[in-house]
Simulated scan of single mutants.
Amino acid sequence: MSGKTVYLITGANRGIGYGLAKTIAARPNTIVFAGARDPTAQSLTDLAATHPNVHPVKLIAADKESNDAAIAEIQKTAGQLDVVIANAGIANHFGPVGTTPVSQFKDHWEVNTLGVIVLFQSAQELLLASPTGAPIFALISTGAASMGQFYNAAMSAYGSSKAAANFIVKALDAENPKLVSLAIHPGWVATDMGNGGAKAFGMEQAPVTVEDSINGVLSRIDGATKEKSSGKFFNFARSSAGNMWDIDTDEISW
């Protein structure tokens, strides 16, 4: 597949993942494997119908069998893998540590943390063999995972699971000399998940558009290098409007 850049995006059937898949698929010389629990979802069926370079694949977070099978399909179809965007995640409960059910912590850690580990373990052989010589593993994280810039938003299950995933990003950078491993805060985005969180805080919808988030996320992934990007936690875009959720730096402290 010389001259092509091959992407795997998880959670690609809706929200940020779908926006990434659609945007990248419209670029020349790209192949997009759109991972989803249900690869026959209408959104992916329609996207693949209009973009023959899009290949929906079944991929369930933290499920080794489906992750292994998705990577095998990529190997068979494209013969290489250059960029993995670990986007799949859940934010199903909002509450403080003292009252959040332990089951919610388990559910969030299963998807948001173990899902990232299983994904890398399945993909690593093919990804690290990328002909680019600098494969990228990008985690869609959240500012809510930052302990250095902590804000109390009662997201104990979600925030802790993403903070643990951030640690994995740092570890992957240290353990793999050629891998560009980075975490990206996509903003508080007006997706089903983001709007659900907004309503929990009395807002009509989340403040960041999907388009703005996608543009910001891709600005961090495009051209990422080991020297300038790897082992870092990036903000999708700086904002100094003064809202609780605004972060006015390009990088976010872990």
Rank of each mutant, 00 (worst) to 15 (best):
L119V: 11
I136F: 07
E125K: 10
A88G: 04
S141G: 09
A78Q: 02
Q75M: 05
M155P: 13
A72T: 01
I136D: 07
F105H: 10
A134Q: 14
W109N: 11
E65N: 07
A69G: 03
Q75I: 00
V84Q: 02
S130G: 14
P177H: 12
F150L: 07
G89F: 00
A144R: 00
N92K: 10
S122L: 02
T99E: 07
L127M: 12
P131N: 07
S103Q: 03
A174R: 15
A62G: 14
G89T: 15
T45K: 14
Q75R: 05
P177F: 12
T113G: 08
H55P: 14
A129Q: 08
H93M: 08
A144Q: 02
G95P: 07
T77G: 09
A165R: 03
E73K: 00
N112L: 02
F105W: 08
N112W: 00
N112Q: 08
V116Y: 10
A174L: 11
N152F: 03
S146N: 10
F150M: 09
G133E: 04
A138L: 03
G159D: 05
N152D: 15
P131E: 08
H93Y: 08
F105Q: 09
A72M: 01
A154P: 12
G159H: 05
V84E: 06
A91T: 11
K178T: 14
S141Q: 03
A49M: 04
K106E: 15
G115F: 00
A174H: 15
D107L: 09
T132M: 06
K58A: 06
H93K: 03
T100P: 09
Y158N: 10
E73Q: 07
S43E: 09
V84A: 03
Q75P: 06
T100K: 00
N112V: 08
F120C: 11
N166A: 04
A91Y: 08
T132E: 15
K64P: 14
A78N: 07
K170A: 12
L59T: 09
P131R: 01
A153E: 10
A123F: 00
A164S: 15
N112F: 05
G98I: 05
V111N: 05
N67Q: 06
F150K: 04
L59K: 02
F150E: 01
L139F: 13
Y151V: 13
T45A: 10
Q121D: 15
A72L: 01
P101H: 01
G133C: 05
A61H: 09
E175L: 10
Y151K: 11
K162D: 13
